[in-house]
Design a protein around this nucleic acid. Sequence first.
DNA 1: GGAGTTTCATGCCAAAAAATCATGAATTGA
DNA 2: TCAATTCATGATTTTTTGGCATGAAACTCC
Lengths: 299, 299
Amino acid sequence: MKLPVDGVQAFVQIAELGSYRRAAEALGLTQTALTRRIQKLEGFLGLTLLDRTTRTVRLSPMGEEFLPLAARLIADFTHGIERLRTTSRLAVGDVTVATIQSIAFRRMPNVLRAYACDYPQNRVQILERSGALVTEAVRKGEADFGIHIQQEPDADLVEDRLVCDPFVLICHRGHPLAGRGAVRWAELGDADLITLGGASGNRHRVEAQLRAAGQPPRGRFVVESTPTAFALVSAGIGAAILPAALQGASQRDDLVAVLLIEPEISRTISLVRRRNTSLTPAAAAFYEMLRVELSGGFG
Amino acid sequence: MKLPVDGVQAFVQIAELGSYRRAAEALGLTQTALTRRIQKLEGFLGLTLLDRTTRTVRLSPMGEEFLPLAARLIADFTHGIERLRTTSRLAVGDVTVATIQSIAFRRMPNVLRAYACDYPQNRVQILERSGALVTEAVRKGEADFGIHIQQEPDADLVEDRLVCDPFVLICHRGHPLAGRGAVRWAELGDADLITLGGASGNRHRVEAQLRAAGQPPRGRFVVESTPTAFALVSAGIGAAILPAALQGASQRDDLVAVLLIEPEISRTISLVRRRNTSLTPAAAAFYEMLRVELSGGFG
DNA sequence: GGAGTTTCATGCCAAAAAATCATGAATTGA
DNA sequence: TCAATTCATGATTTTTTGGCATGAAACTCC
């Protein structure tokens, strides 16, 4: 069963304009086409909707009765479809992103500013999650997509690798290592090190690396949050080992970052979203902006 | 701009059945056709509605959002169209007929009974109007159509001549003229005549005819209503000159009708409806039944 | 883990539907 | 009465749609 929408649309237009010719013009068709549409519709319905002579067009009683409904059906449909197209074209809608803190701190603000400029009516909600909780939020659909440290592949998720975020040594301008282009892990023995604590994957990797370099992680400062680490460094307590992405989180210009090498270890920042689920236009636009912006690497 | 109804319909069906194949079956199409429809719809909208692998189909976020609306749009349209078709096929609806009394009395009941049998859910309203008021009711749209005595042609109305309704002499079984097959107007001089009064066209025609036959209408009985006339005749007061159509209005079997001739004058009973306006299916059905039934003539 | 089955997508073609052009018929109005 | 306007119709072209055969991916069942 095929719905005679064209016919109904033609009927409404003709009824409203009182003329085949004008309706045809309004619809961008020929008058002939409308004649055929109406004939087909009336044939399908088995009744007369328009009483027409060669000169005039008027609604039949049934047409009179049907017109309000018909007009509403067409209007509803048109508006519904049109709203969808607008949503698509302008990428209207809300976006929810789950992200690890480092990105939220450092790079997100720029992207958010640009996105707000391009899509002023869209709201963006940022879920700050640590570690595996990003993928969790994405998997559960709480977030449209996420930004996190790449982990082992997940059957339900698909990742877009963006950039490697190497670990760096953040030290005070006056620190002995501050002038170096890079520092070997093995050279860290002399420094008072500050590391991030908590259950984060970062801590484990850093401690593992220190052990491997023959630098047992004893007597170091372990802090809970990035701002604290910066504050300690700034106060000259020691140097901090952090992902480069966090570097800009401090507003301080008395700090210097030095790349840690031999080996250079890094986290891979990835965009992650559900496999087999497309993003909404609004989310897709934001996703794309993030991808482009974050591909620039960390300098 | 062409509304993508097919696509939306396909989308709804697929979403509800969770499968192209099953949806195709339900719609009486091949799976290929649905694939094409969805592709076209998504292209038109500029977004993804269904996330599909070769094996599974699921709603995308936008699809999820659109489905309720889409389903309602399709359902509304389908129901609206379906109701119209039913109205047409079963001629559902109310009918209003304006008619002169004689028809309402004599022939209408049979037709009404038959119509009520064929279209039990339809209500029929009978407007009893005298003379020109029938056409008035039809012209104003108060009645779908009318039954009346044919008059001069009217530009706004179109008539279907049904049957001639000759004037007859209604007399008591024992009346001297009761046995005759026909009676000349000129022979009425001896009889005590009863005629219908009021402003009806009948009265004028009868009196004109009597005058023409050299029978001035003096000292006759003039009554206001048909039943009274019958009662007088039945009581032996005299004979009544009435249209044959009224004959059966009495339930009496002691009365006899004799055709009046030389000349035989008659009223032409017509169905009348607005020109350039089609009848509703319900009215058309009733109109047709009346036409057939009343073409039988008056016996 | 491999074979078979199921499911959606695609290339190509046929069928069907829709639109158009040219023209006709009826009505209006100068 | 003539010109102009308006809707209908027949023939034709264009566009759209559906279908078949086939492919690729993924699930199931030994």
